[in-house]
């Protein structure tokens, strides 16, 4: 397989950010009430991820190692602001549905995590494909979770009714507890079919592993022990 396509496969299947790496749980849990919100959030994150991977990879020889995290944060925050303004201008309904979770893409662990783990070591072309692959993987998993919640919780999918009128939807699934339950269900299925999620190992270490900064800190804590 061509190494550019391999990045897409890696992001969508092998290292799916939500289902395998368990990154970016906050937006996954928060905006997955309707499938359309899942797509909106997924695509916004993908746009930011591709742009930030591109710029960070292009600047990887310029940014000094000691100040790389603040530099990455500024780059990511700028792209998030641009994305936020564009969504506010052109897609106001998505903007009001996603609300505060759009600016919070800045602290989405996937973005800093990919910058630290991939973009600062690889060429611009590969980093863009990595961003694209991770973004598609994130969008697909998020939309899947959102679709499950929407079908169970309101009986609709992308706003179209899929359950017959006679079936009473379980309202709990579009409420906050439903988010935890659906994600728990996904991980149970992953565990049952034998795909090890990364979170399990990290939770056992008592460590976060949510992003580059925390992971670095976890290493430090391991050393102290």
């Amino acid at each position: 397989m061509n190494k550019y396509l391999e990045r897409i496969y890696n992001g969508v299947i092998k290292e799916n950010p939500i289902l395998v790496l368990m990154l970016g749980m906050c937006p996954t849990l928060a905006v997955s009430t309707q499938a359309i919100n899942g797509i909106g959030m997924g695509l916004s994150t993908t746009a930011v991820l591709i742009c930030s991977n591109l710029l960070i990879s292009a600047l990887r020889k310029v940014i000094p190692d000691q100040v790389r995290l603040p530099a990455y944060i500024v780059i990511v925050a700028s792209f998030v602001t641009v994305t936020e303004l564009l969504i506010e201008a052109y897609l106001p309904s998505i903007y009001s549905a996603l609300g505060i979770y759009i600016p919070l893409i800045v602290v989405n662990c996937i973005i800093l995590g990919r910058a630290e783990a991939y973009a600062n070591k690889h060429s611009v072309g590969l980093s863009v494909m990595d961003g694209l692959g991770m973004g598609i993987g994130f969008t697909l998993a998020l939309t899947l979770a959102a679709a499950v919640r929407e079908i169970l919780g309101s009986g609709t999918c992308f706003g179209m009714r899929v359950l017959p009128e006679a079936v009473e939807p379980i309202g709990l699934f579009v409420q906050p507890p439903g988010a935890f339950l659906v994600i728990a269900l996904f991980i149970i299925i992953m565990n049952a079919i034998g795909i090890k999620t990364r979170q399990r190992k990290l939770v056992e270490n008592g460590c976060d592993g949510c992003c580059a900064a925390c992971t670095a800190d976890c290493d430090r804590r391991e050393d102290v022990k």
Binding site: L172, A184, I187, A192, Q199
Partner: peptide
Amino acid sequence: PEPLRGAPIVLIAAALMSI
């Protein structure tokens, strides 16, 4: 049960707390 160990059972506990 094996598949519930680790993250899933914690998420289920969080769901109950959320309720």
